[in-house]
């Protein structure tokens, strides 16, 4: 059983080779998580597992057993978009839109990491309780999510605006 976007799913994992990404896309029918490389190189498949961002292409579906998975389809609120998603639109933080679900999920996980005091290479002080989400921090921490259309400026602006007062 995997809880996906708040709903328990008992969808059978018929092939032990099935990645979480293929399970979500092919078996559960959630196409938000994208396949861009299937080898952990692009970040398009990023989802949240128990609130932490993971690459669904490098996670076996079986590893998600008993856990809570959130895809981009599950980040909205009250049937609408999350403010982060609204900010992506407002700042034109995408063009083709293929990396976008991964960028959105990654940003949510990243903001939580910052709040939990997980440092990055550019953090001024290791061991601080938490960090300011500066554009440099955002760029560093989001660098596992490629955008070949080059919408990076818009993505950073959307994240910065959304988490100006810390993660929600």
């Amino acid at each position: 059983m995997i809880v996906i976007n708040g709903t328990p799913h008992d969808t059978e994992i018929t092939d032990p080779r099935r990645s979480l990404l293929d399970h979500l896309r092919e078996d559960v029918g959630l196409h938000g998580p994208k396949k861009g490389c299937d080898q952990g190189g692009c970040g398009a498949c990023t989802v949240l597992v128990d609130g932490r961002r993971v690459l669904a292409c490098l996670t076996l579906a079986a590893q998600a057993e008993g856990r809570s998975v959130t895809t981009v389809e599950g980040v909205g609120r009250d049937g609408g978009l999350d403010p982060l998603q609204e900010a992506f639109i407002e700042h034109d933080g995408f063009q083709c839109g293929y990396c976008t679900p991964g960028q959105v999920c990654s940003a949510i996980g990243m903001a939580d990491e910052v709040a939990r005091g997980v440092p990055s290479r550019v953090s001024p002080e290791i061991g601080a309780a938490s960090f300011d989400l500066s554009p440099d921090e955002i760029r560093e921490r989001m660098s596992g999510n490629l955008c070949r259309c080059g919408a990076y400026n818009g993505i950073v602006a959307a994240i910065e605006e959304t988490y100006l007062d810390g993660p929600r």
């Binding site: 896309r25 959630l30 196409h31 938000g32 998580p33 994208k34 396949k35 895809t71 981009v72 389809e73 909205g76 978009l81 998603q85 609204e86 992506f88 639109i89 407002e90 034109d92 995408f94 839109g97 293929y98 976008t100 679900p101 959105v104």
Partner: peptide
């Protein structure tokens, strides 16, 4: 003008060829 396909693209509703 904001992109017309923005809501579909940020919510995972945009259906690409493999989908």
């Amino acid at each position: 003008v904001p992109r017309r396909d923005g809501p579909a693209k940020v919510s995972g509703a945009a259906s690409f060829t493999a989908e």
